[in-house]
């Protein structure tokens, strides 16, 4: 995968950094080998495509989360935000079908609204953390509750379903492919590439790392800390909106159960990928691998009957804790070697 190139370049510098940078990749490879040995169907084209498509939702959101976390913030609202945006899209498209009929324009309207809602929701999170100076954890905990309850309210406790006509037009966005790669995977690849460039090749990415590693240094270095921070939340909102756009045609519905715990999966993907939770160091490539690892675990449990699929969360939890422990382990061994 293109995003993992820089890791490969860094590798020859010394064995010390290997565990930290290549660790997630290694874990993914082991997981793939395990999956294949337990059930060769794991590497069937159909299953691989399915796995990649599933990982796209969390992956796209996690790319946004990488920026937020790198700049020293956190966004807990992404799961509810996705559910809320999905609900709004469906309501708007259904209303449009009533007046214009089901057409491409209806779907485009829904997509446009999704983008506007995502960006606005991100901006609200950013504004409240930077200008109102409320901790990100609190702000996004609050908005998480607000969006979750709004979707429940609009769905009247049930499920919002997209008009069948509109659904037919919208369906290919999730189910069709280009060059045998499903569209959601393309979106994931493009988002990851742009994210990687933003993080590693632009002033914005450098500023995110500077702010996350020491906000005071950033301020004294003439960086507009509040503005950059707000941008990370806007970016996160945009990513949530993109994920929702490819999610809605999958089921054509949204309910209060949509996107539950996505925020934790996104944060987990970011952390498994080697981004530091307290900020200052972000790795988009790692995040992509983190998202693939999380999805692969669920997929393997589905394909084999060694462990009940109901224990998916438990296995993921163990992997997250182990990943962070290994990263810390490699850091301490590095320090010991230096002394």
């Amino acid at each position: 995968m293109t995003v993992s190139v820089p890791e490969a370049q860094k590798a020859p510098k010394g064995f010390r950094i290997d565990l930290k940078t290549a660790g997630p990749l290694l874990a993914l490879v082991l997981l793939i080998i395990l999956g294949y040995s337990l059930n060769p169907a794991f590497l069937n084209e159909g299953n691989v495509t399915n796995l990649l498509t599933r990982s796209a939702f969390i992956g796209i959101i996690a790319v946004g989360a990488t920026f937020v976390i790198t700049a020293g913030g956190i966004d807990l609202s992404v799961g509810s935000m996705a559910a809320f945006i999905a609900g709004m899209m469906i309501l708007i498209m259904n209303a449009a079908v009533d007046s214009w009929g089901a057409s491409l324009a209806t779907v485009l309207l829904g997509i446009g609204c999704s983008l506007i809602l995502g960006i606005s929701a991100g901006f609200i999170n950013g504004f409240l953390t930077t200008k109102a100076k409320i901790e990100a954890f609190i702000v996004t905990l609050g908005t998480m509750g607000i969006y979750r309850s709004l979707i429940t309210y609009f769905a009247d406790g049930g499920t919002l379903s997209l008009n069948n006509g509109a659904r037919e037009i919208y369906r290919p966005v999730y189910y069709d492919s280009f060059l045998r790669i499903p569209y959601p995977v393309w979106v994931f690849i493009i988002v990851a590439l742009i994210g990687w460039i933003l993080m590693n090749r632009t002033a914005f990415g450098r500023y995110c790392m500077a702010i996350g590693s020491n906000e005071q240094v950033a301020r004294y270095s003439a960086i507009k800390v509040d503005r950059i921070r707000t941008w990370t939340y806007v970016l996160q909102g945009l990513c949530v909106s993109l994920a929702t756009i490819i999610y809605v045609p999958r089921l054509g519905s949204a309910s209060s159960a949509t996107g539950v715990l996505w925020e934790l999966e996104a944060i987990a993907a970011v952390i498994i990928g080697g981004t530091v939770l307290k900020g200052g160091f972000g790795r988009i490539g790692g995040t992509v691998i983190g998202a693939l690892i999380l999805t692969a675990i669920g997929n393997i449990l589905n394909l084999t009957d060694i462990i009940s699929n109901y224990l998916n969360g438990a296995v993921q939890g163990i992997i997250i804790i182990a990943a962070v422990y290994l990263q810390r382990g490699s850091l301490t061994s590095k320090r010991k070697k230096a002394e």
């Binding site: 790392m209 500077a210 590693s213 020491n214 005071q216 240094v217 301020r219 004294y220 200052g280 160091f281």
Partner: peptide, 11 residues
């Protein structure tokens, strides 16, 4: 304040 405000010590 070199360490607190001047430099990113991990960079």
């Amino acid at each position: 304040d070199r360490k607190g405000r001047g430099l990113l010590l991990n960079a």
